[in-house]
């Protein structure tokens, strides 16, 4: 009997080219692998912001009560936004800086709307590691360049909210915004 079985085994080996037989096993296992990856995609994707967060309202802000030299803090997409009414002195200070001196070269005009150069609207999120810089409130430390100063790691921004000193790599970000009228601005 044993010999018969052995004979059988030999015959099987000869009959079936190993390649073809393995192919189907490999195909099945690869399919399982593809399936696992396909399942993983939605599991990972679900952690992205949901539709309600993506659709979060653009906000309208009344800026009529901000006197030159003052700033307010408001919230957009759960992040602070600084709205500053620059004084002529601050504007000229900002314009006096040569672009070559800047880490992230941008002019004040590029960071404001034409004809509204005194309105500096930026996110209040330090580009280093995300703290909220000081300088909005009355009497807060505005740092060596007279703009904003981040107390976490000492990044200093100038009057155009451009990075001048410290570890932050970029200027404070300017969000999308539009003036609805002289006194109302829509952010987002």
């Amino acid at each position: 009997m044993a010999t018969l079985e052995e004979k059988y085994a030999e015959q099987i080996e000869a009959d079936h080219s190993l390649r073809r037989r393995d192919f189907i096993n490999i195909a099945a296992v690869s399919f399982a692998g593809v399936g696992a990856v396909a399942v993983a995609l939605p599991l990972v994707n679900q952690m992205n912001p949901p539709a309600d967060v993506l659709a979060l309202a653009s906000i309208e802000v009344d800026i009529s009560k901000i006197a030159p030299g003052q700033a307010i803090k408001t919230s957009w997409r759960k992040q602070p936004v600084f709205i500053r009414n620059l004084t002529p002195k601050e504007i000229s200070e900002a314009n006096a800086v040569p672009l070559s001196e800047l880490r992230d070269p941008q002019t004040l005009a590029e960071r404001t709307k034409p004809g509204k150069e005194n309105w500096l609207i930026t996110l209040g999120v330090c580009t280093h590691l995300g703290c909220v810089p000081l300088g909005v409130g009355e009497g807060e430390n505005r740092g060596p360049f007279g703009g904003y100063f981040c107390p976490c790691h000492g990044s200093a921004y100038d009057t155009a909210a451009r990075i001048r000193q410290g570890p932050a790599p970029l200027n404070l970000m300017v969000p999308d915004y539009e003036f609805n009228s002289d006194t109302v601005v829509t952010i987002g």
């Binding site: 099987i12 189907i24 195909a27 399919f31």
Partner: peptide
């Protein structure tokens, strides 16, 4: 996808069990 996977896995099963 699952139907194709089932067919492939079934063929693979038959293949392995033939032995």
């Amino acid at each position: 996808f699952l139907i194709v996977a089932t067919i492939l896995a079934y063929l693979s099963y038959r293949n392995i069990w033939a032995e």
